[in-house]
Each structure stands twice: as structure tokens, then as C-alpha cells.
């Protein structure tokens, strides 16, 4: 018994070594190797991204406008003149509209008149992903709910499914309504749905979302499953609320009120 176990371990060790060195040997064998696809080394990674908005640090719409502008400018979000065609990635609304189920007659004046930021909640169980017939809307491993504009057929099922009203549709060509194009980011074409992408294109190059940068520290962004992250720190020390929790979608945007 003793003997055979030892010999088994030896054998296993040698084979493991062999397996481990194979790629190295292969690399020596030839200059040519298979083409590879990688992430940028500076990309930010997380198990599940989340955002904490500290509304105590805001007083009026003037504090929020630069944040909305930063996002919309960087993502080439058009400013339509017709209300019907409006497109928003992040916008401002009142407490009673953002937290429809928590509003009551005697809400204190500060909260009642305080403007709130609203954006895609990047839900844990996103209804929009469930209903999309082409997987144009999908959820990444790090929790971000993204859109593939190349694939969207414009059926708008996701807009009906989203319980937070976070999605917009390009009812017409957006280009004439973009004041100043950001050449680093594409625009959209008429006929596709769009929404906040948690700045996936910035995370990929090691930058935090634009709204976080523009918020002067009022918005925190980080990994929900990293106990040392800024968002976890805030969640531990503050009471937070989320939108329409009873629907079970699991929104990733937390508000400190």
C-alpha cells in the first residue's frame, strides 16, 4: 500500500511537470505561435461591479448636471429637440419618481426636493437580457449589462422589460444632434436601443466611469465582492436603498440618502 501510493505520487508529479513544460517547449520549438487575444494589462477587473451614490453630497441640479454632461459627451449621446426622441444614459429625477414605492406624503423636505441621478442598474437578474431575442443585450461575467449595437434589431422588447425605464431608442439618426463628437467612441445609428454601459470602454483601459470621475467623490465605484473596496466600505457604514427591490432584479446602484 505505502509503496504503491508513493509511486503513484511520483508518477503524478512527473506527469504534471511534463504538462506544465509543454507550452514552454512549444514556444522554443518555433518562432511562429498561434494568434492570441488578450485584455489590456491596465484593464480594471471585478467579480461584480457596483456603484454607490452618496446623495448627501448633492444639493441642487447644478451639482448633477456636470455628471450627466460628462457621460453624454463622452458617449456621443445626442440631444434631440423632440421630446419623443429623447435619449438618456444618465438623467435627473425626483425622489417620488426614482423610488416610486418609497415615496410618501411626509417625506422630509431635503429628500423631497433633492434631485436624484438615474441610470441603468446593471441588474443581477436583468429582465432586458432575458427577453432579448438576439443576445444583443447580454450580461458580462463582471455583472455589467451591455449592448451589442451591431446585433440589435430594434424590437424594443428590452425597453418594455426594463422596470427602471433605463433604455432609449434611436428613433432617428442621432448624428445631427450630437454637438461635439467624441472621436474615441462610436455614435449609434437609427433603429437600435442604447443605455448606460457602466463605461465598459473606460474600464477596459484602466479608467473609472466618467460619472464617477465627474462627481467629486460623490459616486463610488468598485467590486461588490471585494471586502476592501470603496463601495463595500460605504455599504458597511451607511444605510443604503435601491430601486424596486421587490422585483428581484438585484440592482447594482446603491443610494445613500
Amino acid at each position: 500500500m505505502e509503496n504503491s501510493r508513493r509511486s503513484f505520487l511520483k508518477l503524478a508529479g512527473i506527469s504534471a511537470l511534463g504538462l506544465g513544460t509543454k507550452p514552454v517547449l512549444n514556444a522554443f520549438a518555433s518562432e511562429e505561435h498561434k494568434a492570441e487575444i488578450q485584455k489590456k494589462p491596465e484593464a480594471l477587473k471585478a467579480k461584480r461591479w457596483a456603484m454607490v451614490i452618496d446623495t448627501r453630497k448633492f444639493e441642487s441640479e447644478e451639482d448633477l448636471k456636470p455628471i450627466v454632461e460628462a457621460c453624454h459627451k463622452i458617449h456621443n449621446v445626442p440631444e434631440h429637440t423632440t421630446k419623443r426622441h429623447e435619449i438618456d444614459w444618465i438623467w435627473i429625477d425626483e425622489f417620488k419618481h426614482v423610488f416610486t414605492n418609497q415615496e410618501h406624503e411626509f417625506v422630509d423636505d431635503r429628500v423631497k426636493y433633492l434631485p436624484f441621478l438615474v441610470l441603468c442598474n446593471h441588474c443581477e437578474n436583468p429582465a432586458c437580457v432575458r427577453v432579448c431575442p438576439t443576445k444583443a443585450t447580454f450580461q458580462r461575467d463582471d455583472g455589467i449589462v451591455l449592448m451589442d449595437f451591431h446585433r440589435c434589431i430594434g424590437c424594443r422588447f428590452c425597453m418594455a422589460a426594463c422596470p427602471y425605464g433605463s433604455r432609449s431608442f434611436n428613433f432617428r439618426d442621432p448624428r445631427p444632434f450630437i454637438k461635439e463628437e467624441n472621436k474615441e467612441f462610436p455614435t449609434r445609428m437609427r433603429g437600435v436601443v442604447e443605455k448606460c454601459n457602466f463605461c465598459a470602454e473606460r474600464l477596459a483601459v484602466g479608467k473609472k466611469p466618467a460619472c464617477v470621475e465627474a462627481s467629486n467623490g460623490a459616486i463610488a465605484f468598485g467590486d461588490l465582492y471585494d471586502s476592501d473596496s470603496e463601495v463595500r466600505e460605504l455599504l458597511k457604514n451607511n444605510y443604503t436603498i435601491r430601486r424596486k427591490l421587490e422585483l428581484g432584479a438585484g440592482p447594482a446602484i446603491y443610494y445613500i440618502v
Partner: peptide, 11 residues
């Protein structure tokens, strides 16, 4: 778009 893999290393 789907995997955030943005670097291509050719043969």
C-alpha cells in the same frame, strides 16, 4: 464588445 478583450497578438 462581449469579452472586453482588446489586444490581438498575431502569429
Amino acid at each position: 464588445v462581449r469579452d472586453a478583450d482588446r489586444v490581438y497578438i498575431n502569429e
